Simulated assay, not measured.
Amino acid sequence: MIKQALLGEFLHEAENTRQILKAIPDSALDWKPSEKNWTTAQLASHISEIYNWYEYTFNQDVFDMGVYQYDKGDISKAANILAKFEENVTTAQRVLENSDENTYLNNWKMEIHGKILFPPTPKVQVIRGFLFNHLYHHRGELVVYLRSTGNKVPGMYGPTADDKI
């Protein structure tokens, strides 16, 4: 039952993520709001990468970032980032669909070479916070990036200022 609720949200929000990634023009990829921020391409790539973490979260109790490797591919074109998203979201959906609800209360942690980065926490809480909410946070940032570069923002939860009602 929990899995079905997570899957429903996952599918709905993956479509929202797809829409915002499709809204990124190549001309905005190098823009960033400050020297401390990622570029639009880096932020969009990170959003796509979060879907790559499902395997490590659902099927392991420890995610060791010290050995984790991810090939983000060529992020110089928005279409490439979208293609990587599609690849990752397909895999993430399969992981979620095949997950065992009996493990959702297992403690999960993230570490790097033995140093704890994310303390032991029930897996279902990590799924909601580390995977889902983390993604939504970065999508919100991407909305600001799009607006700041003069681009339209798709309506994910209803009309936006760009929509004529």
Rank of each mutant, 00 (worst) to 15 (best):
Q69I: 05
G158H: 11
A41N: 04
E87D: 15
S76D: 09
T90I: 05
K77N: 10
T39D: 02
G155H: 08
I165Q: 10
P119Y: 04
P122R: 12
Y68L: 08
F130K: 03
W38V: 02
S148W: 01
P119M: 05
E35A: 15
K36W: 01
P119V: 08
K77L: 10
T121V: 13
D163E: 13
S99L: 11
A78V: 07
A44T: 04
E49H: 11
A44N: 01
T40D: 01
M65N: 00
G8V: 06
V143I: 13
F118E: 00
A28C: 04
V126I: 13
F10V: 13
I50Q: 11
W53A: 06
I75D: 11
L7F: 07
Y157I: 09
N16H: 11
E9K: 15
W38C: 00
F118M: 06
D61K: 15
S45E: 00
G140V: 04
L105E: 12
W38T: 00
R128A: 14
A161D: 12
Y70T: 03
M156C: 03
H137M: 12
S148V: 01
L142A: 07
K152Q: 12
P119L: 06
F85R: 09
M65L: 14
G66V: 02
L11M: 08
G66D: 02
L96F: 06
F130W: 11
T90M: 06
Q42K: 15
H134T: 05
N106A: 07
H137N: 09
D162A: 14
H137T: 08
Q42H: 02
T160P: 09
L7D: 06
N106D: 14
I24D: 08
A23S: 13
T57W: 01
L117T: 08
A78W: 02
I127N: 00
E97W: 06
S27C: 02
Q125G: 00
G140T: 06
K123L: 08
A92S: 14
